[in-house]
Structure formats: structure tokens, C-alpha cells
Design a protein around this nucleic acid. Structure first.
Lengths: 113, 113
DNA sequence: GCATAATACAACCATACGGTTGTATGAGGA
DNA sequence: TCCTCATACAACCGTATGGTTGTATTATGC
């Protein structure tokens, strides 16, 4: 079986809402069910449920049945996947700076002739 | 004057589209104007222009007039702002692991009594 | 100075998103 | 058992988003 490639649209899309980022932060410690999470926000339970579903589809959280609740827990690996993409961009930036530095050094040699 | 706090909604929202992420990647090297960028995609010039505008509002790119074109360049700092937030989440995760480890050690001591 | 290349903006359309209320499902506890 | 707490799902509404075409602005190159 193939592992699914990361869906960056869903990943960053899920992170583009303040409520969802707050849920991600809270769910790092885990232990709270959907209803408990909903208690922190001034919106309906169903709205929070939708946010949780979006985070789940993006792979950013998982739900685990505990008693009659479903405990929400952040998935560290998804956060890392997002971070790695940003790291790649920064690496491209460094590569570019290096190439420019090399070019400058080369042209320096030329002027030495 | 205060510097504006990062708008993570706009930041991650801008990154949630594949075309925009590709523009960010291409604009790291810079040198291309909006029209040149548009040439890479199978959508209208105006659509690409809108994507560029969204990236600009999010602070992810800047435009600089060069000749009769406006050259698009990625803003490294905005990428770092996004990455730092993800880093913070990972740090919270490590803090939690550490707290749990400490707790386990404490309870270990208790069982020693 | 003028034609035009490059960008910007406006209006419009279809669909997605964030929110609501209401109803259905489903597992636990008394 | 069966009541009920916790979650899930459906339908709906207003607005934002991603795309289109068309028109306006603007600075530069000739």
C-alpha cells in the first residue's frame, strides 16, 4: 500500500483559520473531547465539530474513543510535513544566495586576469 | 510606529493553493514579472494577477518595478513567520512529553516509598 | 510625443466556506 | 433495559474565493 502524498492545500487551508489553529494548540495536550473544545469558543457545537472535521481531513488531528467521548489529539507528523515544505523554500533561498555568491567570486577572478 | 502583527489567516490561506505555492517557489529566484509568471500556468493573466495580489497582501511576496515590468520576489521573512508558528506547536509538544516524563519519574519515586 | 507593453481593476459566475438550527445515531451509565 | 450524553449529519444562508472577460491606467521604449 502506498502512503498518501501530503495534501498541502488541505493542510495549509486547515491552518488558515484562527479557531482551528487554537484547536490544534489545545489538542497537543489532548484529553478534551469535541464538546469540551467547543466550550472554549463562542460558536455552536456543530460549528466546532465542522472545524474538527476539517482538521481531521487535513490529517492535523485524530480522534480516539475514550468512554463516551472522542478525544481529539494533534498529529505532530502533519505539523512537521507543513514545516518541512517551508524549510524547503528557505533552503531554495539559501541555494540561490550561494549561487550568487559563487557567481560574484567567479566574476572577481575574471577581473583579476 | 508599531509593526503589524502577523496575519496567520492570510499567511496560511495564501499558502493553501498549489498555484500560489508554485509562484512563491519561482519567485525565490526572482527576476520574473507577473506576465512571465502567468506564462507557466494554464489560466488567464488576470487570474494569476489575483493570486499574486493575495500573496502580496499576505506579505509573502513583494513587487519591484524594473523597466516596464514589476518583478515579483518572495519575502523570506514571511515564510519564517509561518514556520516559527509551526515550530512553536512542536515545542509545545516537546514540553508536554517532558512534563509527562517528569510526572512518571515522580510517581516512580512515590512507589519507592 | 505616442503607441503599446505590462499591469491593474471591475463586473460577473459558480462553487466552497463558515456559520446557524434541527434531527439522527450510538455507546454508557443508572 | 433504556435514558441520555456526546457525536454526527443534513439543510440552509450569507459571504468569500477562484475563475472568466473586458476596460482602464501607466510608464517606457522608439
Amino acid at each position: 500500500m502506498q502512503i498518501a502524498p501530503p495534501d498541502f492545500d488541505r493542510l495549509f487551508g486547515a491552518l488558515s483559520d484562527a479557531t482551528r489553529r487554537d484547536i490544534v494548540r489545545r489538542a497537543i495536550d489532548g484529553g478534551e473531547g469535541v464538546a469540551e473544545l467547543a466550550g472554549h469558543y463562542s460558536m455552536s457545537f456543530a460549528a466546532v465539530q465542522k472545524h474538527v472535521a476539517i482538521l481531521e481531513r487535513a490529517g492535523l488531528i485524530t480522534k480516539e474513543r475514550v468512554g463516551r467521548r472522542k478525544v481529539v489529539r494533534t498529529n505532530l507528523e502533519a505539523l512537521r510535513v507543513a514545516r518541512r515544505l517551508l524549510d524547503q523554500y528557505e533552503q531554495l533561498w539559501r541555494d540561490r544566495v550561494e549561487r550568487m555568491t559563487t557567481l560574484l567570486a567567479e566574476s572577481g577572478k575574471e577581473t583579476d586576469r
